[in-house]
Write a protein that binds this DNA or RNA. Structure first.
Lengths: 242, 242
DNA sequence: CGTCATTTTGAGGTATTTCAACGAAGGTGG
DNA sequence: CCACCTTCGTTGAAATACCTCAAAATGACG
């Protein structure tokens, strides 16, 4: 784990991706942090880089910081009594994670790829909120945004067909995750079993759904971590068919 | 829909149920609104009573207010293209709902029972947040709390067995909803089909799971809206068996 | 007290899970 | 740099559990 100096003038600080819940600032307005706010966050936080598979924190441990992703992908998950694992979320650039419950983390967070992120002590953050109420609103927007995403995901999980669930997952990656620069292909940074644990299905079902989509001519895989939508019309129909 | 005068001295104002994400204020500390904050909210909001089945707002319509439940149960849902309905949440006393996206409600909200609630204009609320940063933090706590609940529900939805999913639902009602005063029985204010839409299963499966639990001696139904856990040990085992 | 929506019960079809084994890929050390 | 080993992913076949369709029974409500 490499810690980098924070608060340097060359460090723009973290950004947060969210959407306003009011319409006061114009419909569709992204609620973005001002440069000044990003700098403040950079000052009270620490910028760090961690390699893939690093554990950021474990569930049930004392929570002292929240994290903001700058680059890379993080997953959060819980272990079930049966030994199975359920992913709570994938976090991409500009996502916040590590909000805890009663001072304890409820999930384990692990880097899927190499990750650059900010670690911000909760105490400093809450203190900053009191000085800058507008910043608190940004985080509230972010939290409500994530809440809506979680509700949408709940709808995905109720789909019976594995092919459709996987299609919605790929659609999510296309929106949230980094697109592969060329041909507008979709990058799939996580493993098949991560996808299975996220969608609540078996590894085998994910595999079969992948080949099924390819066989039907909806998508084309270029290795296991890059996929391209071939038949956009039918792909979108599959996504919407629920 | 009956609107009641707000801001009267006899009106204590709404309360919010949440949990701190830091531990600054003591482990397990509920983050409760001060009397003063509740009064402020009562002043800028409107207290109202609506009968069962009232629509509070419809999805895609302009959002101008958020709501806080004082008494009763509300459900929020979306209609899927197929015509099926998926419930996003049940809201009980001290729950907040109506947080929107880009000034539009994303769900439809409907009263399950007769409901008493506060309607608070978003503009007034955000203005209040700027004057009272601590209040903003309360709402942030609430939002993160609901986010965690949504993640827990996602885990419920991945259960394959209908009996287990229903058991987890009853457990949720036992914690969140109002317990029936006598014998510590659980009140089930919503219909079977509401439960089905919430758990993502068919109405028939809910019915069979209910009778299945009763037949196995785990619970005993007293009509369709009251259930009592008979064999707590095995019931809890079922809840945890995932 | 009657009507109507909701719930229960029944039977067959289908999709996913599970178990098992093979094949591919990535990482490590010599 | 290559070989080995471990992890991950693919494919196959049987079993389980839910969904759908259909009809009867219960309960809610005026």
């Amino acid at each position: 784990m490499i810690k980098l100096a924070g608060g340097r003038s060359s460090d723009p600080g973290p950004s947060i991706r969210a959407v306003t819940f009011g319409k006061s600032q114009g419909v569709g307005a992204k609620r973005l942090l001002t440069d000044r706010q990003r700098q403040k966050l950079a000052t009270i936080g620490t910028r760090m880089k961690v390699p893939a598979r690093s554990i950021l924190y474990r569930e049930e441990t004392d929570a002292d910081s929240i994290f903001i992703v700058t680059e890379g992908v993080v997953k959060t998950f819980r272990e079930l009594p049966s030994g199975k694992r359920r992913l709570s979320a994938f976090l991409f650039a500009a996502d916040v994670f590590g909000l805890s419950e009663n001072g304890r983390y409820v999930n384990t967070a692990q880097a899927v790829t190499g990750v650059t992120l900010y670690r911000i002590p909760i105490d400093s953050l809450t203190a900053l909120f009191n000085r800058d109420p507008e910043l608190g609103l940004q985080f509230l927007s972010k939290a409500t945004h994530e809440l809506r995403e979680a509700q949408r995901r709940a709808i995905v999980l109720t789909r019976r067909d594995a092919i459709g669930r996987l299609a919605m997952f790929l659609r999510m990656l296309e929106k949230d995750g980094a697109r592969v620069s060329d041909h507008g292909a979709i990058s799939i940074p996580m493993s098949r079993s991560d996808i299975a644990d996220y969608l609540g299905m078996s590894l085998e079902a994910v595999s079969r759904a992948s080949t099924g989509q390819a066989r039907r001519g909806l998508v084309a895989f270029d290795g296991r971590h890059i996929v391209r939508v071939v038949d956009r019309k039918r792909f979108d129909e599959l996504v919407a068919a629920l």
